[in-house]
Nucleic acid binder design. Structure first.
Lengths: 239, 239
DNA sequence: CGGCCCGGGTGTACGTAGTACACTCGATGA
DNA sequence: TCATCGAGTGTACTACGTACACCCGGGCCG
């Protein structure tokens, strides 16, 4: 009876269950709370049991990236390379925003799992299908950089988490004075981006807009190069 | 005597000595070997002694970033905004390449130390001095993203360290076949970038060139926007 | 049908990490 | 001369990743 109860309750572990549990845990508790021990606990299992399904924590993280990659939409066909790339990047960005841990994990890793390679391969394919030379495609992929994953190092970002205690107004005023003296340029930019909300710290900056601004800037540059048949010195020499 | 010997040998610790020792250790042994204990050992001191000079490891890392920022050249004046930005970014890149740990540390942190804010502030200043509107400056900073630090997520990078054992030629051939089937596009790009060196894995890809390619693409885009007096919808509405 | 094997789950244990807290001890200033 | 203070110490705690030996139940072969 108890045995059967246990048997029914305990769905046997497998790699997928481990990975998706890890993703859920990281989504909900933050990547810094994702330890092998905590994950095992979440799965109602002893820590070492995990090692029957992933070699170590690194492989766990790689596996999580794979889960994420699987969520990205496949490239649309017959819409022109520019649209295809744009849509795909925005899809990647949506996945990324669903999983706040992803940026850090992608950054910390040069994950070349099959899923990641597959993503990159089909990504390259969009440019080639659009008539880009192999040479230009190469440079263009580099220019895109981490934006192909739907993120850029968001330097102005506030995402440091935790309730930001709003200081008293007079303190804020003092901070503002201080900012104005030390970092006048930052202040100007921040104020312009905001101006309706009085707080200095947070900013009403539309990440999505910024992201698309930069993305389109790059895509337009790619297009210009492509149209004028640009080729790197190197590729020209080798012909 | 021994006391004096000790006294002479033991230069008193201070924040700067701790930070520069941390930078040296990270440079030489890798960021993963930088532990409070190891750093203390390197300084001939007990681990807890460090906590008299930095609050915790996070603050140590922030301090290391400050050291790095201090190495970046100040902006040149009277050379036009484009040149000024370009030179500064390339200087940042040089610092970054001197300290391999820097990319990871910058990425993992939204460090807003005074030194970092100062860097960003004077960076913004270059655009404003070039006549950019505050609005455009804002977007342009976002578009630059991590490139303002001299790096981009180098996705094709091999920097995973450790001697890459070259497999036997027949194995390589098999791998190549496999690649050709699974990731034909990657293969084409990789082969084009290489073609003189037979190995599939490593690539003779000129990082510096790629970096400048992308940087110039962005700068050219900025210039075009600037010349045509571009303004975001939002800024226009608010006038 | 009985023994065996094999693979997923267990228990214990080790080494390393960050750091809290109470301490010592020498220089310094009253 | 003596109290104070702050840099450096010692000990100890918790949490981590994971090596290694183990158990035990189900499937297979004889």
């Amino acid at each position: 009876m108890t045995q059967q109860a246990e048997a029914t309750r305990r769905v046997p572990l497998n790699r997928d269950r481990v990975l998706t549990a890890a993703v859920v845990l990281a989504d909900e508790a933050g990547i810094e709370s994702l330890s092998m021990r905590r994950l095992a606990q979440e799965l109602g299992v002893v820590p070492m049991a995990l090692y029957k399904h992933v070699a170590n924590k690194e492989e766990l993280l790689d596996g999580m990236v794979d889960v994420l990659v699987a969520e990205i939409d496949p490239p649309v066909s017959d819409a022109g390379w520019k649209n295809a790339v744009r849509l795909r990047v925005l899809s990647a960005r949506r996945s990324l925003l669903r999983h706040p841990w992803a940026r850090q994990v992608l950054e910390s890793r040069s994950a070349r799992t099959p899923a990641v390679l597959g993503y990159m391969d089909s990504f390259i394919g969009m440019f080639l299908a659009g008539g880009f030379s192999v040479d230009l495609t190469h440079h263009v992929m580099h220019a895109l950089g981490s934006r192909m994953w739907g993120f850029t190092q968001e330097l102005f970002d506030d995402s440091a988490g935790a309730a930001p205690v709003e200081p008293a107004p007079e303190i804020q005023a003092a901070m503002l004075q201080e900012m104005a003296k030390r970092y006048p340029n930052i202040l100007r930019v921040a104020m312009a981006a905001e101006h309706d909300d009085g707080s200095v710290v947070s900013q009403g900056c539309d990440d999505q807009f910024e992201f698309e601004f930069a993305l389109d800037l790059l895509l337009d540059g790619f297009e210009r190069f492509h149209q004028q048949g640009w080729t790197s010195e190197r590729a020209r020499l080798e012909r």
